[in-house]
């Protein structure tokens, strides 16, 4: 699963730690999400999408 979390975070001028705190997860979790090593639960995916005021489909993309 690919995602645009890194791009959205950098556009928002946030550090991984700041985003992690906003989402209620650890910095390592944000790092793993950005690097595609960890696929989030549906509630966390909704939380990420809600934080960036967009939809899950706009952030997460299934690998072809």
């Amino acid at each position: 699963m690919r995602n645009d979390i890194r791009r959205l975070r950098e556009e928002a001028g946030l550090s991984q730690a700041a985003l992690a705190e906003a989402l209620g997860v650890s910095r390592q979790t944000v790092n793993s999400l950005e690097n595609g090593r960890y696929d989030p639960s549906l509630p966390l995916a909704f939380a990420v999408a809600g934080y960036f005021r967009t939809t899950i489909e706009e952030i997460f993309h299934v690998d072809a």
């Binding site: 650890s26 390592q28 639960s41």
Partner: peptide, 21 residues
């Protein structure tokens, strides 16, 4: 609670979903 290690967070009881997984 922002301990920079999953093991520490587990012991502290402040795990997130990735730590639990």
């Amino acid at each position: 609670p922002t301990a920079d290690g999953g093991f520490s967070r587990t012991l502290l009881g402040t795990t997130d979903e990735r730590d639990k997984a």
